[in-house]
């Protein structure tokens, strides 16, 4: 295998980063191994689980199926770029609040997919949330707290009341 490296420039989370990398490497590998951004996870490296989801130009893509070369010089957003100067994004905030992130391994992918949804649709229905997140698997939560976190984050972004219901945190 030709192992000579190529030099590329990536725009990750608003920063320009120069990387020497092997041209066959996936975006997932470059993010985790060359840029040290290990917040992006992998559950299969076959495009099946959604854990490696990042945003390219604001659109969710599976970084395990994306060649790094394809996305040079395009804006990439990972979980590390989601909080703003230490202040959690509403999706992160409500995921933490409700325990929508149990083991947390799928959380980066979910929150980035949800962020893209809310950018396109600020008031999604439960069914629209389900559809937007259908490519991301979670084994811990049963998705329920994830749906609720997305709904509350959407409400907050719309400037509407966003207090979790008692049924959500304590049951009926």
């Amino acid at each position: 295998m030709d192992r000579r490296k190529t030099l590329g420039e990536f725009r990750v989370n608003g920063e320009r980063r120069e990387v020497a990398y092997e041209p066959h490497r996936t975006l997932l590998e470059v993010l985790r191994e060359d840029l040290g951004l290990t917040g992006t996870k992998h559950g299969c490296e076959l495009g099946e689980c959604g854990a490696c989801t990042v945003l390219i130009d604001g659109t969710p893509v599976l970084s395990c199926l994306t060649l790094a070369q394809e996305v040079e010089d395009r804006p990439i957003e990972t979980i590390e770029g989601m909080a703003d100067k230490g202040e959690l994004h509403p999706l992160q905030d409500f995921s933490a609040e409700l325990g929508a992130s149990q083991c947390g391994y799928c959380s980066a992918g979910f929150m980035l997919a949800a962020k893209a949804l809310l950018a396109a649709n600020p008031a999604p229905t439960r069914d629209e949330i389900r559809a937007a997140l259908a490519g991301n698997l979670c084994r811990c939560t049963g998705y329920v707290k994830i749906f609720e976190a997305v709904e509350l984050a959407a409400a907050k972004q719309r400037g509407e009341p966003c207090t979790p219901s008692r049924e959500c945190t304590h049951g009926h």
Binding site: T38, Q92, G99
Partner: peptide, 18 residues
């Protein structure tokens, strides 16, 4: 909130492969 909730939603939790 879980005491480590913030790390888990910001990608800072270090799993074994990290």
């Amino acid at each position: 909130r879980k005491i480590d909730a913030r790390a888990r939603v910001t990608g800072q939790t270090r799993y074994a492969d990290d």
